[in-house]
Design a protein around this nucleic acid. Structure first.
Ligand code: FES
Ligand code: FES
Lengths: 148, 148
DNA sequence: TTAATTGATACTAATATAGTATCAATTAAA
DNA sequence: TTTAATTGATACTATATTAGTATCAATTAA
């Protein structure tokens, strides 16, 4: 059982790259090569993130993508929802015969409780947090300004 | 993002049926029809559960399946592992370039922490607990003995 | 004018999930 | 002892999801 698919995985990595270069544009090509993400695949992910207002883009030479939303407000939960759909444990585990009344079904409650736990755990993890953790662990990285 | 697949879903339902009839055999056919599970699909699941010593079977007329392991010791985590593989958030989110040393990677720690949370939440849910909840909510069910 | 870029979209490949079919072996019961 | 109900084993098909590739038009800095 794999919780994060490649979509989400790559998206997080791309966002970390953009968050690190906050304020300047970075091309899909450079993100792809630097972080070992399939180029065309990445482009599709970036466009989805534009639609969700996480990032912005500029076309043409010297164009690229740039962080828009505050990295501390981008949670892994949000990314999972964008790329894998809302977290749901199971549509409805025990239909018909067993469970007549959906409304006050204990099993359903149990399921929804877990959904909540999972979701809130992922909510604690933001791009901002990950980036700070990364930089703390890996102080080699200098803060990128305009040096390509 | 769907956490429980049909395998696990059906397996849980089948186990609840068997747990309710503890001590007597119940055929795949009756489980399938009573709980609306595709017959041949179910049979495969039952055989997997035999291999994991959750249930036992008896061949021939009047044969069927019977609970073996204590329902309170069958966790949803165990079932997920059997039918969907071990819970893992992501193989390794940031390879190569970003993360040189796997050993003390903060991101990896974060991931593993969540894995633990998810896993332990599902560990709290046992077949025994689900069955008791079900019976409490649905007191129509009489304890099945030998009446078919 | 050109080359580097994104926008949009269609396509293919690989894998996982879901479901079906078949036949041999066993066994209770007619 | 024959038969029908059952499990054991396994192969097969269908569908959906995930992963990845390709193409071409539009934009824009140099
Ligand atoms: S399990 Fe679906 S309503 Fe009870
Ligand atoms: S993310 Fe894989 S080792 Fe750091």
């Amino acid at each position: 059982m794999k919780v994060l698919t490649k979509n989400t995985d790559y998206a997080i990595r791309a966002l970390l790259a953009l968050a690190a270069k906050k304020g300047s544009y970075m091309s899909a090509k450079s993100i792809a090569t630097e972080h070992d993400i399939p180029y065309q695949f990445l482009r599709r992910l970036l466009q989805q993130m534009i639609r969700h207002n996480l990032i912005v883009s500029k076309e043409g030479v010297q164009g690229g993508f740039m962080m828009q939303k505050n990295p501390d407000e981008i949670t892994v939960t949000e990314l999972i929802e964008i790329f894998q759909g809302k977290v749901q444990v199971s549509e409805c585990m025990f239909r018909k015969q067993i469970c007549g009344n959906r409304a006050r079904c204990v099993l359903r409650h149990e399921i929804m409780r877990i959904e909540q736990v999972v979701q809130s755990e992922f909510e604690k993890v933001t791009i901002g947090k990950l980036l700070r953790d990364l930089e703390a662990a890996n102080p080699v990285h200098q803060k990128a300004t305009t040096i390509s």
